[in-house]
Design a protein around this nucleic acid. Structure first.
Length: 267
DNA sequence: GTTGAGCGTT
């Protein structure tokens, strides 16, 4: 998104690109344009943003139509304090498609570069290139590292909960699309620290502190379950008072002890 | 409400 046209870079041929570093995360292209336009014809102002959050990444690109004007802007605006921060202005070293550029000027037209790379390798690995570039960029940023840590911790917790809660049939489905959905829901409502779906279906969350302190669930279940489980139906009948109808074995034993001499008697 | 080395938009 550029400042002028909503559909990507307007005309980047024969323009001179400046890299503006160290600007505030709140600084917009509208803030930068008047500053830079004072020194020449600004063709485009672009602030790269995080694709997930849409936040500024803290730097910008300003394209001039003429090299001398860009040079003057570098001299005049480098070190200028904008919104409380000293911004650094220098000529860009790489073009929009990672072309090497000299003094902010693209040496080779972008179309020619694209055609050349396409003819050399028929398979356009656009996605891979994009992901690699994004990964390199993010690994350099401490703030985004923290963001990723949180994201992965959330994903692990998600997996743990969905596994321990129950093995629902859509468990595989949830795990397959889990990361993306989690990011989307997170960006939609960043103020919620926990996932609402899991919170509502978590039984421990509904317990009040009073009932939990009186009888902890885990202990209660553990201490109550052994007696009924270890007592089998057979032993239960034995412990009870003898049934009015004696079994065959009992009758046999009593007859035996009556007929036997004194040998078998104890005491 | 948070971040802070660096090079890019549907």
């Amino acid at each position: 998104m550029s400042h002028f046209g909503r559909a990507g870079p307007p005309d980047i041929r024969d323009t001179y690109s400046l890299l503006v570093l160290n600007i505030t995360f709140r600084t917009t292209a509208d803030d930068l344009f008047p500053l830079f336009d004072k020194y020449g014809k600004v063709v485009d102002v672009f602030i790269p943003r995080d694709r997930r959050t849409g936040d500024s990444r803290g730097f910008a690109f300003v394209r001039y139509k003429y090299a001398d004007e860009a040079q003057k802007a570098v001299e005049k605006l480098d070190g200028r304090v904008v919104d409380g921060r000293e911004m650094m202005v220098q000529f860009a070293k790489y073009g929009p498609n990672a072309e090497r550029i000299h003094k902010g000027r693209i040496l080779e037209p972008v179309e020619k570069l694209k055609r050349m790379s396409r003819s050399r390798s028929p398979r356009p690995r656009y996605r891979d290139e994009y992901r690699d570039r994004d990964y390199r960029r993010r690994s350099r940023s401490r703030s985004r590292d923290r963001y990723d840590r949180d994201r992965y911790r959330g994903r692990d917790r998600d997996r743990y909960l969905s596994r321990s809660r129950s093995r629902s049939p859509d468990y595989g489905k949830e795990r397959r699309r889990g990361r993306y959905d989690y990011e989307r829901s997170r960006s939609r409502s960043p103020d919620r620290s926990g996932s609402p779906t899991h919170h509502s279906s978590r039984p421990r969350g509904s317990l009040s502190p009073r009932s939990r302190s009186r009888s902890p669930v885990g202990l209660d279940d553990k201490e109550r379950s052994p007696p009924p489980r270890s007592v089998s139906p057979r032993r239960r009948a034995d412990s009870r008072t003898p049934s009015p109808v004696p079994s065959n074995a009992d009758v046999r034993i009593s007859q035996l002890s009556k007929d036997l001499p004194i040998t078998g008697r104890c005491k």
